[in-house]
């Protein structure tokens, strides 16, 4: 706060991290470090001395089992990464198409708008796991020629269908948040409606919705584990196998750790992207 008053620029380009707060000055950093160390030492001591801790440690944090299962689970996790990388790429495109469809003007295009509304209502309403079961078991059972049998294919398809409904709504919120005067300015220069969307509206909309978009993608990363239920052995399924073999839950913890390790860099990357954008547009000038 005081730093804001001093520099007179507590504005958009100069906002500090909410978590780190105002850590300028050696004294403040010293206090922060000391209080952090003391706090976590106390927490650790309390946990380690509580009654059930040895059992918990044995069942969930067995060092040897962790070392044994981690490579296997880690290898299976590559499948999770593949699942959501493919799904994310498809969702980004498909959801945008739906959002644009929903924003089309005029009475002639009403059926398209209706279709987009129905789609989002439908796939946001049905539980993800149900969609995965219906497609994963149902579609191959039809035995239609040309329809793939791979459970992986149908698992990814189900995730794309479900998550596109959410992401389309995120996009739509972004598109609607761009002021109509931007469209007027673009159209007044002779840009077509499609060009206006592509060069003026969508770029601004996407920038604004990056945080909620990331939020949905974190959800998607976790839900990649659901694909295991129709067959493919990804990290969660692999850890289940390991748990069943050892009657110990440590492999689950290894899987959980992998998911967390993937999510955190993504969150930081997004923060960085947003900060960079803000710097460019307001405080930092051309760079």
């Amino acid at each position: 706060m005081s730093a804001d008053a001093e520099t007179g620029r507590g504005d958009r380009g100069d906002r500090r991290s909410r978590i780190l707060g105002d850590l300028r000055g050696t004294r403040n950093i010293g206090i922060a470090v000391t209080s952090t160390v003391v706090f976590f030492v106390v927490v650790a001591v309390v946990i380690a001395n509580s009654a059930g801790w040895p059992e918990v440690r044995k069942a969930f944090f067995d060092r040897k089992l962790f070392g044994d299962s981690f490579p296997e689970v880690g290898h299976a996790f590559l499948l999770n990464i593949r699942i959501f990388c493919i799904a994310e790429a498809l969702i980004l495109v498909f959801a945008l198409a739906i959002a644009v469809l929903r924003g089309l003007p005029g009475p002639v295009l009403f059926p398209f708008r209706l279709l987009a509304v129905l789609y989002t209502d439908l796939f946001r309403g049905i539980p993800t796991i149900l969609v995965i079961y219906i497609l994963g078991f149902g579609a191959p059972a039809l035995q239609l020629s040309g329809v793939p049998n791979s459970p992986l294919f149908w698992g990814v398809t189900a995730l794309v269908l479900v998550y596109s409904a959410y992401v389309a709504e995120v996009y739509r919120a972004g598109i609607e948040s761009v002021h109509p005067s931007q469209e007027a300015a673009a159209r007044s220069l002779g840009l077509s409606r499609a060009q206006t969307l592509r060069y003026v509206i969508v770029p601004q909309a996407v920038r604004r919705v990056i945080p909620p978009l990331l939020n949905d993608f974190i959800g998607l990363q976790k839900d990649s584990a659901l694909v295991a239920l129709i067959g493919p052995i990804e990290a969660f399924r692999q850890s289940q196998i390991d748990v069943a073999a050892t009657f110990n839950y440590t492999p689950y913890m290894a899987t959980a750790l992998l998911f967390i390790l993937l999510t955190i860099p993504l969150a930081r990357l997004t923060d960085w992207l947003i900060a960079r954008d803000r710097r460019r547009q307001s405080a930092g000038g051309a760079r």
């Binding site: 005067s181 931007q182 007027a184 300015a185 673009a186 159209r187 007044s188 220069l189 002779g190 840009l191 060009q195 060069y199 003026v200 770029p203 601004q204 920038r207 547009q281 051309a286």
Partner: peptide, 30 residues
């Protein structure tokens, strides 16, 4: 609209583009 230019009260520049891109968007795309 290509033949009629309009300038608005609230400027309505494209905030995600540099000044140069603002000016060249229509000349290059239209």
């Amino acid at each position: 609209r290509r033949r009629v230019g309009i300038v608005f009260q609230a400027f309505n520049l494209f905030p995600h583009m540099t000044v140069l891109r603002n000016v060249t968007l229509a000349t290059s795309r239209v």
